[in-house]
Design a protein around this nucleic acid. Structure first.
Length: 809
RNA sequence: GCCGACGUGGUGAAAUUGGUAUACACGCUAGCUUUAGGAGCUAGUCCCGCAAGGGAUGAGGGUUCGAGUCCCUCCGUCGGCACCA
């Protein structure tokens, strides 16, 4: 047996073979049922592939190969989320343009991914930074604009004075810029938004229809943040104005003692001069608006505020409520105004304490407490019975809430409303390396969509990337000239680019028809492939990409570009891979020096070992540490398979492995379906151990095992198949288990006395379903007799094929 | 602070979903093999005990004939949100 397992030779050989024969191309017209199996496409960073990437990619590869063997026409594509800030920062530092560096990175990623033998359909590769792709990103923007879902408004944005640029919310860490650690300030800028809030209710409701991990659904639900309540109008004394507050707890309204407005709320902005204490009010507003994010956070929940000098009337009891302004109230939540009930809201209580406002109890506290509320711990929220509240007295707060809402609506003092926490999606970025926003301004500054025939609006190359507080595109002469040439003197293009999440919100659609120059995708092809049947990636996109893509799907479907027949959701099933930690159980990072390079693993052990190892580490969705020792064990397993196939004699005589083999077919099939790859592999090891003990095996047994191992270790399986001169069609079928072969010759049953194992009895297959025989045998056992003799048997429980439990007194 | 996930040998973990806890690996120990190293093969490996037996799934309590699994309280680790009215 000098034929050794040499992955470094066989793996490149089969990778070339698959590529040369277009082995994994998805067929656009096929009679087979379709299966769309998708990875979250990577950002091609300069660091190359991280060991976390192959974890997800191996899982989808196993799944894709398994589904192909199961008779499906599988779409399994790969591409590049190529726009992004790191390439631009690299350009600022080195002068290498982002296009060049990004495409070098893509080459490296492609090489690394191909070396792992994944069955991607490379003919569908896409690159979001190519004009062929972002042409359609821009086209979709125009559709959003024409349907009223893209709009421009002045907004507070996160501004880093040191980097001279705005930052996305995700780039603000504890109030500081994630790159330079300087405090982030608020700045008002004209920005483009997508009206995702129009879809809040649908994004929430449709979550119920998809097979996603519950924690991800929950995070989306929380992010969307539906709250049902009522808007109540309070008339402002000595004025014809009224303040509208939003509350979910109108039941406590008899306990209201003040009203608070957000400093940057619309009411304050337009009615500031109505307040008697105008000077103090204006100075408070000025202070709070200047605060950095960091200052706000470091102040914690300490309450500050100012009395405006104005009062409103609570029509329920004609009480005068003083009106305050405080930055604990947020302009963007509800109406930007709050009615303060300090007895039953901790924040209101803290504010009342700080301002010296009275506290009224309207809900009975813990242990029947009806005393005056003077301590934070007495503030009763969320449950209880009403008191001091006129017609609500004695009611449970939830009943009271409904009753008073009916009353307020009937009186015309309020109106039920539903609020959502989710905000419109700010898509403008003052960056270079992204898709240009296809908007042109006339000399008066009015925005116009660019004409479709001018798409793609190409990203100019004559720009200065260096940060200077305005968008790099503003420095391009060619961009300026082009706008004037196409639209006339004094016209200019929008100089911001789109958030890269816009590009990634529709890439799964493009894979269905990646070379279409007339449409982003032919509806017929979308109809054939959508929805994505299995989507795999990290959980870090829970409320970003995964929410945005759902929004795009719904909007584009409503515009008529995605057939109704494919359903309201883009991703039918989702699975998240867990993070892979370093050997030291810490997050992998260059500074810790615990980063594992996939290239080195493939070099030292082979791609099949790498694939198997990552799947064997632990449950797919869980965080797990890298262990270099265990990789050796996986290589040993593959060598053992290899060696068994080299040395075993084949013979059609019956042997004892059929039970193990059919158990393995069953287990591996079920485990792949459930993404339990670790236990599937362990079963394959058990089966191999049983094979290795046999002097002779049937050819059929060797073939089935190869079919089972193929999705996991395709190179090894192909090589052994070829060595044995078996047909290539071997891997076009998935084996089925034979129920009759799963029957044990005998069963070992446990006998418990009062819950403790006292003996084990062996029963033949014919006896194992007969309760009477089982009971008799169990009670006849010598060991059991020692425990039960002279005792009263209360009952005997028989669990078929498993155990007998005898209860004595 | 609120929401969520998790906690099992020296390590990664398994447990047919309420039925023999520790499968499958890694590591370790001993023996064999090899000129040596690497590797390979065989046996052993939760704890206490010579044994019979007893104990053990973060801690404590409960339900049950039977609990890693279900319920309650607490502790710890990780993730998300963070004054959302």
């Amino acid at each position: 047996m000098d034929n050794k397992y040499q992955p470094n030779i066989i793996e490149p050989k089969w990778q070339k073979y698959w590529q040369d024969n277009n082995y994994y191309q998805a067929a656009d017209n096929s009679t087979k049922p379709k299966f769309y199996c998708l990875d979250m496409f990577p950002y091609p960073s300069a660091n190359g592939l991280h060991v976390g990437h192959p974890e997800g990619y191996t899982a989808t590869d196993i799944f894709s190969r398994y589904k192909r063997m199961g008779g499906f026409n599988v779409l399994h594509p790969m591409g590049w989320d190529a726009f992004g800030l790191p390439a631009e920062n690299y350009a600022i530092k080195t002068g290498v343009d982002p296009d060049t560096s990004t495409h070098n990175n893509i080459k490296n990623f492609t090489r690394q991914i191909k070396a792992l033998g994944f069955s991607y359909d490379w003919s569908r590769e896409i690159d979001t930074s190519s004009p062929e792709y972002y042409c359609w990103t821009q086209w979709i923007f125009l559709q959003m604009y024409q349907h009223g879902l893209a709009y421009r408004k002045k907004a507070h944005v996160n501004w880093c004075a040191s980097c001279q640029t705005v930052l996305a919310n995700e780039q603000v860490v504890n109030g500081a810029c994630e790159r330079c650690k300087n405090p982030v300030m608020q700045k008002d800028l004209e920005q483009w938004f997508f009206r995702i809030t129009d879809y809040a209710d649908k994004l929430l409701a449709d979550l119920d229809s998809i097979d996603w991990p519950e924690p991800i659904k929950l995070m989306q639900r929380n992010w969307i943040g539906k709250s049902v309540g009522i808007n109540i109008d309070y008339d402002l004394e000595n004025s014809d104005q009224h303040i509208t507050v939003f509350t979910t707890r109108p039941d406590t309204n008899f306990g209201a003692t003040f009203v608070v407005l957000a400093p940057d709320s619309k009411f304050v902005q337009t009615n500031l001069k109505l307040f008697p204490n105008y000077t103090a009010t204006a100075s408070y507003i000025e202070q709070t608006v200047k605060k950095t994010e960091l200052e706000r956070i470091s102040e914690g929940k300490k309450k500050t505020g100012v009395f405006t000098g104005s009062y409103v009337i609570n029509k329920l009891n004609n009480k005068r409520l003083p009106v305050y302004i405080s930055d604990f109230v947020l302009a963007s939540v509800g109406t930007g105004a709050v009615v303060g009930v300090p007895g039953h809201d901790v924040r209101d209580f803290e504010f009342a304490q700080a301002m010296g406002i009275e506290v009224i109890r309207v809900v009975v506290g813990k242990d029947g407490d009806t005393a005056t509320i003077s301590k934070r711990e007495q503030v009763q929220e969320e449950q209880g019975t009403m008191i001091n509240s006129d017609f609500l007295n004695g009611l449970d707060i939830h009943v009271a809430t409904e009753k008073i809402m009916d009353y307020l609506e009937k009186q015309g003092w309020g109106k039920r409303v539903t609020n959502y926490k989710i905000r419109d999606w700010l898509i403008s970025r003052q960056r270079y390396w992204g898709a240009p926003i296809p908007i042109v301004y006339d000399p008066q500054g009015n925005a116009h969509p660019i004409k479709e025939e001018h798409l793609p609006l190409l990203l100019p190359t004559d720009v200065d990337y260096r940060p200077k507080g305005t968008s790099p595109l503003g420095s391009s002469k060619s961009y300026k000239d082009l706008a004037e040439k196409l639209y006339g003197a004094g016209w200019h293009f929008e100089v911001d680019t789109m958030d890269t999440f816009v590009c990634s919100s529709w890439y799964y659609l493009r894979y269905c028809d990646p070379h279409n120059a007339k449409q982003f995708a032919d509806p017929e092809k979308l109809k054939q492939w959508l929805p994505v049947d299995m989507y795999v990636g990290g959980a870090e996109h829970a409320v970003l990409h995964l929410l945005y893509a759902r929004f795009f799907h719904k909007a584009l479907q409503d515009f008529g570009f995605i057939p109704k027949a494919v359903g309201r959701e883009p991703f039918k099933a989702l699975r998240n891979q867990g993070m892979i930690l370093g050997e030291d159980h810490q997050k992998m990072s260059k500074s810790r020096g615990n980063v594992v390079n996939p290239d080195a693993i493939v070099q030292d052990f082979g791609a099949d070992t790498m694939r198997l190892y990552e799947m064997f580490m632990g449950p797919f969705e869980e965080t797990k540490p890298w262990d270099p020792q265990s990789i050796k064990g996986m290589r040993r397993f593959l060598e053992k398979i290899w060696n068994v196939y080299q040395s075993v004699k084949t013979d059609n005589a019956s042997n004892t492995v059929d039970l193990a083999l059919h158990q393995t077919i069953k287990k591996v099939t079920e485990d792949i379906e459930q993404f339990k790859f670790n236990t599937a592999i362990s079963q394959l090891m058990i089966c191999l151990n049983s094979y290795a003990e046999q002097p002779k095996l049937q050819e059929a047994q060797l073939k089935i095992y190869l079919q089972l191992i193929y999705p996991f270790a395709p190179h090894l399986a192909e090589e052994l198949r070829e060595q044995k001169h078996w047909s290539e069609n071997l891997f076009q079928d998935w084996p089925k288990y034979d129920e009759t072969k799963l029957v044990n010759v005998s069963y070992l049953m446990v006998i418990q006395v009062n819950g403790k194992v006292r003996d084990k009895i062996e029963l033949s297959a014919s006896e194992v379903d007969n309760e009477q025989i089982i009971k008799d045998k169990a009670l006849a056992s010598n060991k059991v007799q020692q425990y039960i003799s002279g005792k009263e048997i209360v009952k005997v429980i028989v669990v078929p094929k498993k155990l007998v439990s005898i209860v004595i007194k």
